[in-house]
Simulated scan of single mutants.
Amino acid sequence: MFALPFKNDKKQPIILKKLNTEVKIIEFNGLKWIDIIRPTNNEIKMLEDMYDFHELLLEDCMTEHQRSKIDSYEDYSFIVLHLPRYKKELFRLDSEEIDIFIGHDYLVTLHDGEFKPLVELAQKCQSKEESRKEYMDEGSALLLYGITKTLFDYCFPIVDKIGNNVNEINRQVFANRSKSMLETISRTKMQIINYRSVIKPLRPVVITLEKVIQKYLPKDKDIYFDDITDKIEKIWDMLENYKEVIESADSTFASLTNHTINGLMRTFTIIQVAILPMTLVSGLFSMNVQGIPMHEYSMAFWIVFGMIFIPTIFIGMMLLLKKDKWF
């Protein structure tokens, strides 16, 4: 049993949500699919008793890998897949790991149950014979194809969501230079970076998998895994395109913001030049020292006012006439 902290959008105190281990053993036409959600040492011991898996690979199932990989042995292959998962409550895109053992007549999947399509596929195969016939009738390799296809199909809506955000940023980048716009650009840029960091090491694994899986495939079925390769290449091409667009939008937003700041600074400078006589004269006549001119003269106020007002009006008119050179 696992206890994980959860926090909602309203930043309420952290509560603990208990998650139980689940094991599904599905059999059809001589093929066995064992799906383990949140494995513990008990489930690892069960696999050790059932199959001749290397102990280091079983240990790997209990630790988190940083990258996807595939190890091929004489009787089975061990596959680690990292796929992106969008965490709505955190507005963040992370990777989720799936560990897979595949042999000629069995398939073992171990994961944390975060991929809803995979959990639903296992439940459907367990409860419906037509689903077992659809996914498990032609061996372990085509069952693996069905699982990976389901997972990659799950990835496309995330890419589409990122694409919609990028298109919306492109539409608003010239009209909106608020802090929220900067946050949206930064968040979308981070999502693209995280997505690429997951997909990039997965690409060579899928290409290798296409070769390794040959020994588990029925004849003339190798075209299926070409489809998986096409899917991941399509995702990568879309991410590359979004990366270029968001970097361009980020650069444009920064340039527009700098231009706005420069315009404000230029305006403040003009205002300071316009009120310079006022500042200078009022500063001179406000000094608390002996010998200030016109100290006892009855028209002193109006003379000083004229010394301030007339040059200020003159400079203001000059700036107004030369406004095309200033703005």
Rank of each mutant, 00 (worst) to 15 (best):
F2I: 11
L4Q: 12
P5Q: 02
N8V: 01
I14A: 13
K17N: 13
K18M: 08
T21F: 02
I25G: 01
R38T: 02
M50C: 05
M50V: 03
E55Q: 14
L58W: 02
T63Q: 12
K87H: 05
E89K: 13
E96L: 15
E97A: 14
I98V: 14
I100F: 03
G103L: 10
D105S: 15
L107R: 07
T109E: 02
E114H: 12
L118A: 13
L118V: 05
K124M: 04
R132G: 03
E134N: 10
S140F: 05
S140A: 15
A141R: 06
K149S: 07
T150W: 01
L151Q: 03
Y154R: 08
P157V: 01
V159Y: 07
A175C: 01
R177P: 00
S178L: 09
S178G: 15
K179P: 00
I185V: 12
T188H: 10
I192Q: 06
I193S: 10
P201S: 08
P201W: 01
L202C: 06
L202T: 09
V205F: 10
K211A: 11
V212A: 12
Q214F: 04
K215Y: 03
K219I: 06
F225M: 10
T229G: 10
W236G: 07
D237R: 12
K243Y: 05
T252H: 06
L264Y: 12
I271Q: 07
A274K: 05
G283E: 05
N288T: 03
G291N: 13
P293I: 00
I313M: 15
L319Q: 15
L321G: 00
K323M: 07
K323F: 00
K323G: 03
D324Q: 13
K325M: 08
